[in-house]
Amino acid sequence: MRGGPHPLAPSPAGRGGTVHDRGPGRPDGTAVQRCLLDSPPRVGKAGECVDGRGLDPEREGSAWRQDLVTFAAQVWAIVWKDIVLELRRREVLMAMATFALLALIVFTFALDLAAEHAAAVAPGALWVAYLFAGTIGLGRAFALEREWGTLEGLLLAPVERPALYLAKMLSITILMLAVEAASLVLFTVFFNLPVLRLSLVPVLLLGTVGFAAAGTLFAAMAANTRAREVLLPVLLFPITVPVVIASVKATAGAIDGSGPGAWLQLLIAFDAVILVVGLWVAGAVLED
């Protein structure tokens, strides 16, 4: 991928503070020493700096930054893995794109999108297609991980749970954005509506991130239940009601030129709440 050691590969002690010793504290005190030399103590994890001597105030700032770099590297490694996988197999992406296209065609028949009132119905039709495609993608992505047993692999890798959550969320966001971009082009061609606006970019980004942030959480949960195809939408759609309303309204504003207004702030609030909670509870969802 790039030069240097793979971010997921366990690195030997003493290099760059990436060692997270999760084992019980050793009698000879090596774990404690590592804490002093490298990373800051992680409160609450067994075996790390249990005696409290691990805190080194002088190194704390830089070590914290080092941690962030490690975190980013872990996230990027998993996102890159997902992108490479998609570029080679296109399994999730094709399912999502086909579904979005079919949804738009069905809407054309059901709502007469080609007629005069296309501009009024278009934002709703687009977002329903995106959200359903996103749900399909989420279900598929986690189903594949399950079928190949790769989720266990990821859970066994020395990756922080929040990093894993953020990476899966970014992967699905990238896939959804790709599908959204493609279907916007198609929409313009089919319905002769000027939906390719620059002001649509923040709406698409914020709406998709919010949906993916909640979706990743619930898809990981639903994948471990008996009725996963049913449970994902049942869990996801009530929670993402604000995303649906705000995205549709903001898209309508962007298309007719009146601007997205306060809806963007609502999307930001939703994204922030779900991401913060998601990172916090990632450990509880992505376990065994």
């Binding site: 869990l235 609030a269 709440v273």
Partner: peptide, 16 residues
């Protein structure tokens, strides 16, 4: 565990 996550996310989501 899953229900607890939903109990937290759901409650914080209500004002939004």
């Amino acid at each position: 565990r899953y229900a607890a996550v939903l109990g937290i996310v759901g409650f914080l989501d209500v004002p939004i």
